[in-house]
Design a protein around this nucleic acid. Structure first.
Lengths: 294, 294
DNA sequence: CCAGTCCTGTGCGGGGATGCACAGAAAACG
DNA sequence: CGTTTTCTGTGCATCCCCGCACAGGACTGG
């Protein structure tokens, strides 16, 4: 049963009873309709219509085709209206991805978005690997820094994450509290375990302190944060996360050159849809109210 | 949603994930697949796939199309196998038409046929007008005489209906019983009200008796029979019907030149199907056992 | 009875869809 | 890291499908 167009042609002939009428509805020449019917009947090896000078009357097989194709046409019509309308409606799935550390910042935003648009089902994916927007893995990605992007990705700045240097009281009790980077001698630091990291504050840290001052290194941001919380050394923590933990003491306040830009990345095809646009405006509105950002 | 072939193409792409794979399955060049997708997306005004160098991944709309077209393909496959197989199976409707007078002769044949093939639903249509086989109004028609037929009709002889001359005892008591046509003077007859009837016995009657001897005329065979039963005169009744009524007295026994041929008429397209063939053999078998025929 | 209308059916010419070849890019593999 | 494979995408030539025109047949209405 290849060539669905011929089925559609036969369907209209069965529905209307004449080749000419079907040709009008289909917008083709009636000769084309006759050829479609002939080809379809030859492939099926059975007559679909009784031909007479007054028109085509469907046989039992033709009436069978009529009822099947009737539902098919309705299904396709519904599908078409769904697809045509879905770009304009805010419904269906919205897949957002980011690095794991953003969860507590983004979750309230996405929850309120879901409450604003109840038709939307939100999926928030965090994973080690970077999700690929051009594979359709997510509608929106929130990423940190100015990494390389796929050619078809549209990237917008969302906010600048301010980070400061923090340590625990236990660390200060043991090693003291430096007043500025001039007092860093003898202190121990927590840093990412990656030579050419793109995070500006870690680049500053590697440039400022001696390599042997880095007492604790890890690849994951959450692991580094935990290390600071357990007194492994002085380390960078984003202000909004540090504010949640009263046990953290600010060693140096955030500086503009430490700020890490947060980017919204979407695929160009999905960027235009109303659903994605609605989420982007919602996200930007929420970001305006974020403290510790600017 | 015109052009169902493009939907089929998109369905295969969504199912297989690559343009090349879909092209192989569809038996077309992969360039054709790309053009189908592009055309379909442009008409829908929405993206169905995320394009990347490794293949096409369906978007939400593409997944919607996938599930709809999946059922469509199954429906069409079932339809195809039904139509391809229906010529080989004995099932569905069987529409038989004849003149009304044949009902008591044909009904037991059709009932036993339906019991032999329980999948078949039999419809027996009798009407004044002649049903047109080329309009698909019936599969099989049983007709009397050698009337003109449509060019695409295939006609087979079924049996020769024997008829004799009958009257009631009441008529004989009043007018006597003729020994042969030589005694017909003074008798009254029942005849069809049609000058150029093709029934051989009525042609013989009109040629044998005087016009004013025809005391009762009617157009319908059943009306003529009833007239004889009520003593209106001597009239032709087919032997198999006369045998059912003990009140009818045979005036003249059936003659070969009075026999009316019974024909089976089918449309050439339906004649080949197993269902029609099964009925034809069943009907001919039954006709062999008919008494009063040969 | 005859013109008018509507339908099917077919040969012919043109154009659009298709196949082909090649380029380019990305993933896979040793 | 270079090679191979696989897949997309596009310009070009070709072929097939489609539209056109006309013939023929059947029903209709005056």
């Amino acid at each position: 049963m290849e060539n669905w167009d011929e089925i559609r042609t036969a369907f209209q002939v069965a529905r209307l009873g004449t080749v000419s009428g079907a040709a009008d509805v289909l917008g083709v020449h009636h000769a084309t309709v006759i050829r479609h019917i002939d080809a379809l009947e030859r492939r099926l090896g059975a007559k679909l219509f009784q031909r007479h000078a007054r028109g085509y009357t469907p046989t039992e097989a033709g009436r069978d085709l009529l009822s099947v194709a009737q539902t098919t046409e309705e299904q396709f019509a519904h599908l078409s209206s769904r697809i045509k309308g879905q770009g304009e409606t805010v419904s269906g799935e919205l897949v957002v991805t980011s690095i794991a550390g953003m969860a507590d910042l983004l979750t309230p935003v996405m929850v309120s978005f879901q409450q604003k648009w109840p038709e939307v089902r939100v999926r928030f994916l965090t994973d080690m690997r970077v999700f690929r927007l051009d594979y359709g893995e997510a509608h929106v990605a929130i990423r940190a820094g100015a990494g390389p992007e796929e050619p078809d990705n549209v990237v917008q700045p969302l906010a600048r994450i301010q980070s400061g240097l923090y340590a625990t009281q236990a660390y200060i009790d043991r090693f003291g509290k430096p007043a500025s980077e001039a007092d860093f001698a003898g202190h121990r630091f927590v840093c990412v375990d990656h030579e050419n990291t793109r995070a500006p504050f870690y680049r500053w840290l590697r440039a400022t302190v001696q390599p042997d001052q880095i007492a604790y290194a890890a690849t994951e941001a959450a692991a580094l944060e935990e290390a600071v919380r357990h007194g492994a050394g002085i380390g960078f923590i984003s202000c909004f996360r540090a504010a949640l933990d009263p046990g953290l003491i600010e060693i140096l306040p955030p500086r503009p050159e430490w700020e890490a830009p947060l980017r919204i990345v979407t695929h160009v095809d999905l960027h235009r849809t109303r659903k994605v646009q609605a989420f982007l405006t919602h996200l930007k509105d929420a970001a305006k109210d974020w403290a510790f950002c600017n």
